[in-house]
Design a protein around this nucleic acid. Sequence first.
DNA 1: CGAAATGGTCAAGCAGGTTGACCATAGCTT
DNA 2: AAGCTATGGTCAACCTGCTTGACCATTTCG
Lengths: 148, 148
Amino acid sequence: MQNSEAMALSAALLAVAGELTQRINDGVVARGFEGMRPAHGFAFARLAPNGATVTDLAAHLGVTKQAASQLVDEIVRKGYAERRPHPDDARARLVVLTGRGWACTRAAEEAAADAVRAWVDVLGEGEVRAMLGQLARIAPCGPIRPTW
Amino acid sequence: MQNSEAMALSAALLAVAGELTQRINDGVVARGFEGMRPAHGFAFARLAPNGATVTDLAAHLGVTKQAASQLVDEIVRKGYAERRPHPDDARARLVVLTGRGWACTRAAEEAAADAVRAWVDVLGEGEVRAMLGQLARIAPCGPIRPTW
DNA sequence: CGAAATGGTCAAGCAGGTTGACCATAGCTT
DNA sequence: AAGCTATGGTCAACCTGCTTGACCATTTCG
């Protein structure tokens, strides 16, 4: 495979990823969750199952724990999450989503589904599902790094 | 297609895009082009063919022209580009890549090819090429927005 | 028990972006 | 040709998100 093809693939992938991010965020905001940024969505993805500590979150986002702590301050102040004492470790604090945080997460899922539906209209459901399979096999396990 | 599938697809796509960005940038730096950030790569992609004005670049990157001008200052200072008078418009200045700028662009292509090769090892060339075709059909035409 | 490691926060600084103001040149309308 | 408006570009001030560095509380291990 030629360098130019690799570059074309990279450009297309990054363009699609950028637009997807934009669409999800726009969709979330349009559903009434103002002041949300894409980084919040990545945080929610980590918090959603069972909550997480600030340090966990920092590792997941690929930033310092101070930055993660600031981000938690923000989503707590806006009512999307709260800090609870950690059941097993008196040093740590477990950050969990509030009801509003869950609602926002569902809004993000809906927005993502809308964006994907647009792809299904162009490619058909089979190809989109195939793409999911392919991407899942090459997706890294490490931290989600929105670093660009 | 369910919301959860759409979310999984989105997460995989963003994870792959994030890692690709990281790998390309690391590869560029490893090839001797220090101090480069992913945003520079997006700028080079626009400058490469025939140069561009600061305003063009700003539209392409989705930032203000002041921000684009600062970025041009930086790549000029580092020797990757230069500002030349615009042939048709005395107000405008055409930003073009220098030899070093072209070398950096080629390094980025090589790094991208390395990253794609890793995918070919997992998926096979056919599926990677199929992915290119699919992505090309859903890629937006608007500005590349690394906004997240 | 005491030393080192870990979870978390506070404070200061930096980097990259934004808004606002401004100048020079183009282009259009008379 | 004259004048108004639009466009390309830069300078300056500010804002936001993240980093580094210092520090305290608690846990873990020798």
